[in-house]
Design a binder for these strands. Structure first.
Length: 649
DNA sequence: CAATAGAGCGCT
DNA sequence: AAAGCGCTCTATTG
């Protein structure tokens, strides 16, 4: 009988599978290596670990580094300044002979594709990463994700496996961060590490699997488990993108950057680093006799504000050089050029080089594989229950401005395909009106009147068919202020009016929509009364903010804004959009794909002939009876069928 | 040399 | 005195 926890022989693997087959549940975890380490669609799995009743094992399948240093070699390498330095590189013994991935995945296929419960900490990654070994099929339900479970139980703590183990068992088993780069660590160390990942996932599951039920979180937990399927759909599909369009735009931006840079240096009379806020501040705010432009600063940086609060002396570098601070000086040619530079640099570095990579720089790989970028969508990335996206972030692709639109235009459907883009109309205000259940906003939505127009009509005392653009813009700011808790200064800034005017409009708004303010106060008061200071979203997700009881006015106010916003944001762009996505998957024809979510927006990709079907599926998923019944205000959506994402309205 | 903080900015 | 994110660059720290 094999006794080791590390599986190297086929007989051992058979024995392990036999043992696991006896039980209805098991945990598993994978370790992966570059290229595309964190990208389930393309990464290479070199370790699989599993745990169940009475057994936990590591199964290596391609780890190269052994346990001992058996020599060293000298390697000359170029340093950054072009010099050559000799580095001593240790030579490691080879790792023991291991099973092949195909052997391993074939052997465990009966476990993965059974009705046994697969338990993972961050299931989308582990489920998605093994799909490539099964022709794109990922292990079948049921699943249990201890990470999701953990987040729902406390969104304020660190919920990664290591922090949770440390919190629960006062124990650190990975001080070296082995999982971040397994291939650089010794075989035995990784074997132990992988084994412990699965073992502790198992222990956490046993310990915490029923806690959500005790807190009335079963419903959201079930929703989030259903959402896993939508995550897998998005991260395995990826978003279709045209690299050539980005390349051309990159050249255009580069040319302009070089030009702008030269003009600035010429006008200022010297070179400096345009990407360094401190150097920019000196150029802008230092008096003329000290080589600066002598401009009057508009605002402080965060660091500057702190200094000011402590009563310390300020330096020029404590003044902000952000776009907002520069705008008042736009008539100054240097400032105007700086604004151009900042905008172009952002687009070039983040959205062109960030995607295409830099051949000169190994740390900047090209993210496009077979015409797709695989962002990693995180279903509980935000503490409100909102999605987040990373690597690349597909939720902050530029949409405004001439150049921004060009970036978004690179996200295009494959030939013969279309993008179908659907977004909810005013979903946050709809949810707010639903929660209140009456009032002008509620009535307005039922009458099919645009929320900002409705608000403008009451604040400016005009019939809603006589609301002017400027009125609507102010109203938009006012509605924004409700949801985010913004003050007069922000409203003024947004709508382009004075603070005095903003205050006046806000007072009128309070008068015309008293129920909104009553409701807000009620939500905050109720939350403060609960033992853990929580409120719940429409589907029962909790947001806890202990600072609601802080004696520090600033902290308490911040918490009040946060908890109210979380209730609205979490219900709208957490719960409802997720429910719509879960409903969508079974309605989509197999040839159609869900590729992205941007908070209140879903993007699908489908062959042209199937477009009507996909449109209907999106309508049903987002607006159909099963979701509409949850909201006492009519849901609406806008849909566009386009070739390029930039063309959606 | 690697990790982290701060500033700034893209999106809903 | 504005909710929620992630990325890039510079400058500082370990």
């Amino acid at each position: 009988m094999p006794s080791s926890n590390t599986v190297l022989e086929p007989e051992h693997l058979d024995h392990v599978v036999k043992h696991f087959s006896r039980y209805g549940e098991f945990t598993y975890d994978i370790e992966s290596v570059p290229p595309h380490r964190g990208v389930p669609a393309h990464n290479t799995v070199t370790w699989l670990s599993m745990a169940t009743h009475g057994m936990a094992v590591s199964i290596p399948m391609g780890h190269e580094k052994g346990d001992k240093i058996i020599g060293e070699r000298i390697e000359p390498r170029l340093t950054k300044d072009g010099k050559t330095r000799n580095y001593k590189i240790p030579i490691w013994s080879p790792a023991p002979e291991q099973l092949r991935p195909s052997q391993v995945f074939e052997a465990i296929e009966p476990l993965m594709f059974s009705d046994r419960l697969k338990i993972c900490h961050n299931a989308p990654f582990d489920l998605g990463s093994v799909a490539k070994y099964y022709d794109g099929r990922y292990p079948t339900k049921p699943w249990f994700d201890t990470f999701l479970n953990s987040v729902l139980l406390d969104e304020n703590r660190l919920n990664g496996l290591k922090p949770r183990v440390k919190q629960t068992y006062k124990l650190s088993y990975d001080s070296e961060n082995v999982g971040k780069k397994v291939e650089t660590h010794e075989f035995s160390k990784v074997a132990r590490y992988a084994y412990l990942d699965s073992k502790y996932t198992w222990l956490l599951w046993k310990r915490e699997k029923d806690l959500c039920r005790e807190e009335g979180l079963s419903g959201v937990l079930e929703l989030e488990h259903d959402v896993i399927e939508t995550v897998l759909e998005m991260i395995l599909n990826g978003a279709p993108i045209n690299g050539t369009v980005l390349e051309e735009l990159g050249v255009e931006l580069d040319e302009r950057l070089v030009e702008t840079e030269a003009k600035i240096y010429q006008r200022v009379g010297r070179k400096f680093n345009l990407n360094a806020p401190q150097q920019k501040a000196q150029v802008l705010y230092l008096p003329k006799d000290e080589g600066g432009l002598g401009l009057r600063p508009k605002s402080l940086t965060d660091g500057g504000k702190k200094k000011w609060a402590r009563g310390e002396e300020l330096a020029v570098t404590d003044f902000s050089t952000d776009a907002d601070a520069l705008k008042p000086h736009k008539s100054n040619p240097v400032v105007s050029l700086m604004l151009d530079y900042q905008r172009d640099m952002k687009l070039k570095s983040t959205y062109v080089t960030g995607i295409l990579g830099d051949p000169e720089d190994d740390d900047k790989p090209c993210l496009i594989v077979d015409g797709r970028v695989h962002g990693s969508f995180k279903q509980v990335g935000a503490r409100t229950g909102r999605w987040s996206s990373a690597g690349p972030n597909l939720q902050n692709i530029p949409s405004r401005g001439e150049e921004g639109k060009k970036i978004r235009a690179a996200y295009e459907a494959a030939p013969g395909y279309k993008l179908i883009v659907a977004d909810y109309g005013q979903i946050e205000l709809v949810v707010l009106a639903h929660f209140i259940g009456h009032g002008a906003l509620y009535d307005g939505f039922h009458a099919g009147i645009d929320a900002h127009t409705m608000t403008a009509s009451l604040v400016f005392d005009v019939p809603f068919d006589q609301v002017l653009k400027e009125m609507r813009s102010v109203a938009k700011g006012l509605n924004f202020a409700i949801v985010y808790g913004a003050g007069p200064a922000t409203v003024a800034e947004m709508a382009g009016i004075t603070i005095t005017e903003a205050k006046k409009h806000m007072a009128k708004h309070r008068q015309m929509f008293p129920e909104i303010y009553e409701y807000k106060a009620y939500v905050i008061a109720q939350a403060r009364k609960t033992p853990d200071c929580h409120t719940r979203t429409i589907l029962g997700r909790k947001r806890r903010l202990r600072d609601l009881r802080s004696v520090d006015d600033e902290k308490r106010s911040a918490a009040e804004r946060q908890i109210f916003n979380a209730k609205i944001q979490g219900s709208a762009t957490g719960d409802l959009i997720k429910l719509a996505m879960v409903r969508l998957i079974p309605l989509l024809p197999p040839e159609a794909e869900l590729i992205m979510t941007v908070h209140d927006e879903l993007v699908c990709h489908a062959p042209e002939p199937l477009v009507p079907l996909v449109e209907a599926a999106l309508r049903e998923a987002m607006l159909g009876e099963g979701i509409q019944q949850l909201v006492s205000v009519p849901l609406t959506s806008d849909q566009s069928v386009v070739d390029r994402w930039s063309a959606a309205k």
